[in-house]
Design a protein around this nucleic acid. Structure first.
Length: 773
DNA sequence: GTAGGGTTAG
């Protein structure tokens, strides 16, 4: 049995497809011969000694300038060299890569007269660092010879991207494994969310080095198990500065700044820029900008990253002017600086400022484009999102999963399943396997579009699933009213190594509520702390109130609200309000509505809910009062009216506030409406407004009429009672198609007509409204 | 020439 090293070289020599230059091939060949004959591995030291000392001297000088980032000087030296060897090229190559000049590295690599394994490994590292894993893999596959460095480079690259499957595959394929390979595998488990497996691996091998201990601490931090992380930190055999930085940033990220600060003050190793920056960003995340600023001032050596952290601190806490001042003062800005500003403006909905940043920034990377996409998406500019997404490709920026995520979620919002599916296909072309992130994006998309089958298919095909994948499935099914299915997924999840988190339980509780699984839901809620070690949060209470409310147990829901250990959120009150409307408990509903207005005086949606609540009891004067309170804040086309037009007939949902200040506008609308209504044989709209309180009965009748149409299409009476409804393969006439869309808008539902056929696409057929063609 | 820690998008 040949030794692994010899085996690899043998493979290389006998490979006909090897792209390696002939000269190099010959020298390799000789080398192999001698190695095989002598039956021992090549001696690296001997090889090093062969290098011309003058060349070594030049190389050292080049490397020195590269380390300092003096690229031009390094280049000059390289050009002046009396004799260049592969090692000089390699020095240049690795200098370019460590200075992130990937294009220069690629160009140099292509011009090299000969290449050795180090050139190939450096190039591999180059592609990995620039984030082009498919290119790296391609090179890896084509490499004439691979050693453990090549394998390790790929393993840890896959690990960092959460691609456990690929990392594991190469780990097992690797002919030789060292500590770095094992650490790579460990990192792969951690980054793909398979922390239980990471723990098992870590426990099974006793001789781990400090790097793996640090990875495990980081893993616990990522799992939000900070006290476990601390236990590990306390027990580890020796701690270096990275260990300290990891645990400090762990406490900082988990919001425990007291402990983070205590560790910071007692740490026995020297604090570096990582330590300081972790603390600055920790204070920022806690909203303590002053303290963050104080630490920033004290920081002995600031770099761009620390500047970025302080700018993010101000931006995250909405202190835009101060952030802007710092931004202007900064000694030098990098891509992240610009992106930080851009994305923070985007998050705040300050679209103009975001746009300004985007167009002013010297260069744009994927994050910049993604942030801009997110900014547009946030303010609902769906068309802009898709335009920018295409523009991004046109400008040659590679889209990543974030950009796809944004585009896909916009597709979901616009209910453009076709374009989204197209993106799905595209994603497959560019991707290097179904990682968690891409899978989760697709799951979200298909659920948003209501294509449960497609979502399930993606889920089944996913090689790696993390907590988010399971959560998306559970809450996806829950949202669409498939409570049993959601429970099924939850039961499956419990059989895996992945632990449910608080979001999982929110999904399961809401599934229970929509499927009427009241007892299951209640028992989960009261045992979640013991079984899953998760303390109920406001969202869990909201689910419970929704669950009890839907089941008609309003009194219990009411007392649970009172028992809550924290102030109920507007959505909690909303759940109670909705239930009280369905189960005719106006007192509770009004109580809830009042609470909502205290919390959110401008919540127009709640005004509408309240006025609907009154309307369903025939309390028309209260409807009116509520509408008056709403003022001009209603999002309707004409304030005070909800109406749809179906086949030239106007259906009025409600006519409310004749007391609305914008009388001119209302009367103008009424004139138009009048004509249409009279033509359709209905009572005049003007009449209704003038006698609105008395005539509301008639309005109610009209509402009922139009609702009947809606029921025919299956739009109302959605089993889940939730605002998403998918109608597949509907044969519908043009007018009704529009009407359905309009109902969706009025009723604040997302209705998706999937694969529906419009009137003109057919010859011979009939629509549910009675029309035929 | 390969592994762990701090800042930005999702």
């Amino acid at each position: 049995m040949p030794k692994p090293m010899q085996m690899r070289l043998w493979l290389f020599v006998h490979s006909n497809s090897s792209p390696i230059p002939r000269i190099l091939k010959r020298s390799f060949s000789n080398h192999v011969e001698s190695t095989v004959n002598n039956n021992h591995a090549p001696d690296k030291k001997k090889k090093k000694n062969k290098e011309d000392p003058r060349v070594v001297k030049w190389n050292k000088a080049i490397a020195y300038h590269m380390r300092l980032g003096h690229l031009a000087r390094a280049q000059q030296l390289f050009d002046q060299m009396p004799r260049t060897t592969v090692s000089s090229y390699n020095t240049m190559l690795s200098g370019y890569v460590s200075n992130s000049h990937f294009a220069l590295a690629i160009s140099l690599f292509s011009r090299m007269p000969s290449r050795d394994i180090i050139s190939y490994n450096t190039m591999l590292h180059c592609h990995v660092r620039s984030g082009h894993l498919p290119t790296a893999r391609h090179l890896f596959d084509e490499m004439p010879v691979k050693d453990e460095v090549s394998y390790n480079t790929m393993i840890s690259a896959y690990a960092r991207h959460g691609l456990l499957h690929q990392a594991k595959e190469l780990f097992h394929q690797a002919p030789v494994r060292n500590n770095i390979s094992w650490n790579g595998l460990l990192a792969a488990y951690i980054h793909s969310g398979r922390f239980e497996l990471a723990k098992q691996l870590f426990e099974s091998k006793p001789n781990w080095d400090v790097i793996s201990w640090n990875s495990m601490i980081r893993g616990y931090v990522q799992q939000k198990q900070i006290y476990e992380a601390q236990k590990l930190f306390d027990n580890m055999p020796d701690r270096d500065n990275v260990s300290w930085n990891t645990i400090i940033s762990g406490f900082a990220q988990s919001g425990d700044m007291t402990e983070a600060r205590r560790l910071f003050d007692i740490m026995p190793v020297e604090k570096d820029v990582f330590t300081w920056t972790a603390v600055v960003s920790g204070y920022a995340k806690n909203g303590n900008v002053e303290e963050a600023r104080g630490m920033f001032e004290k920081m002995p050596h600031k770099n761009v990253v620390s500047w970025n952290a302080i700018i993010a601190a101000y931006m995250q806490n909405r202190r835009f002017n101060e952030a802007r001042k710092l931004f202007d003062q900064m000694p030098c800005r990098d891509q992240v600086t610009w992106n930080t500003m851009l994305s923070a403006y985007g998050n705040a909905g300050m679209i103009e400022e975001a746009r300004e940043m985007f167009y002013e920034m010297p260069s744009r990377d994927t994050v910049s484009w993604s942030a801009m996409l997110a900014a547009y998406s946030q303010v609902g500019l769906s068309e802009e999102v898709l335009y920018m997404f295409r523009e991004m490709f046109r400008r040659g920026t590679k889209a990543n999963y974030s950009s796809y995520a944004c585009a896909l979620s916009t597709c979901a919002d616009m209910a453009t399943l076709n374009y989204g599916t197209q993106l799905h296909t595209q994603l497959f072309k560019v991707s290097y396997g179904m990682g968690c992130f891409v899978g989760n994006v697709l799951l979200t998309f298909y659920f948003k579009c209501g294509s449960m089958d497609d979502a399930q298919k993606v889920f089944d095909e996913m090689l790696e699933k993390d907590t988010a994948s399971w959560n998306t499935m559970i809450s996806g099914y829950a949202r669409h009213g498939f409570g049993l299915k959601a429970w099924e997924v939850f039961d499956l999840m419990k059989q895996t190594q992945i632990k449910p988190d608080d979001i999982t339980l929110v999904g399961v509780l809401s599934a229970s509520s929509h499927a009427g699984l009241v007892d299951k839901g209640i028992s989960l809620f009261y045992t979640m702390e013991q079984v899953y070690d998760i303390t109920p949060k406001p969202a869990h209470y909201t689910c419970m109130i929704d669950l009890l409310g839907r089941a008609g147990r309003l009194k219990e829901a009411q007392s649970l609200v009172k028992e809550m250990p924290f102030e109920p959120e507007p959505t909690t009150w909303g759940a109670l309000l909705g239930a009280s409307r369905v189960h005719r408990e106006p007192e509770i509903g009004i109580w809830a509505a009042k609470k909502i207005f205290e919390l959110e005086p401008n919540n127009t949606g709640m005004y509408v809910l309240l006025s609907n609540l009154y309307a369903s009891y025939g309390k028309w004067s209260d409807v009116l009062k509520t509408r008056v309170l709403m003022g001009g804040r209603g999002a309707r086309k004409v304030p005070g009216f909800s109406w749809i037009e179906i086949k030239n007939k106007v259906h009025v949902f409600s006519v409310g506030d004749s007391a609305h200040p914008d009388k001119q506008r209302i009367y103008h609308f009424l004139e138009e409406l009048d004509l249409k209504m009279k033509k359709a044989g209905y009572v005049s709209a003007t009449e209704m407004v003038l006698h609105d309180v008395e005539e509301e009965e008639k309005v109610h009748m009209l509402r009922y009429h139009s609702e009947r149409l809606a029921v025919a299409f299956g739009i109302l009476n959605v089993p889940s009672g939730r605002p998403i409804r998918i109608i597949k393969n509907l044969r519908v006439c043009e007018d009704c198609h529009n009407a359905i869309k309009y109902i969706a808008k009025i009723e604040n539902r997302l209705i998706i007509l999937r694969d529906s056929n419009r009137f003109h696409h057919f010859s011979g057929g009939s629509c549910s409204c009675g029309d035929y063609w």
